[in-house]
Amino acid sequence: MNKHLIKFVLNGEPREILVEPNELLMNVVRERESLTGTKYGCGIGECGACAVHVDGQPLLSCIVLAADVDGREVVTVEGIGSYGQLDPVQEAFLDEGGVQCGYCTPGMVVMSRALLNENPNPTELEVRHYMRGSLCRCTGYSGIVRAVLSAAEKESSGKAVPVAS
């Protein structure tokens, strides 16, 4: 296999790395960049644990070829908020008990942020519809939905501001 040089932006930082054709974005993020917030769940695009933003849209990094993100902008959960300055979505997950075992949480946060960027005032149904691809095996969906709605309310009333990466 011939390696390919890719240039992309990861959480606001330019990156230039050589990747194998069969390396996945999830492998690059977790193993090369040591950003282990992005989780490996099912590996076949069915659970949402590996979701990241690529050019502002939520993608499943376990089924994206790393070579395909050449020239694009990737934001992982580490790029949403930071230690000491959480994103309103992350604050809301803490406040509303949107976290149980925590494994699905990074994917949930990534999806929530994408939803609120696109639709700042979603209804409960819109939240459930948008997040339907993110599975929580603790089945803690009520807290998660409450968290997204609470973050939306705080952001749209100006009580909280999204933390850009």
Partner: peptide, 17 residues
């Protein structure tokens, strides 16, 4: 279920864009 660990893509191939 997949017979392989789906954390990686084991198949090898060339890539062009």
């Amino acid at each position: 279920l997949p017979a392989t660990n789906t954390r990686v893509l084991v198949t090898e191939f060339e890539y062009s864009r």
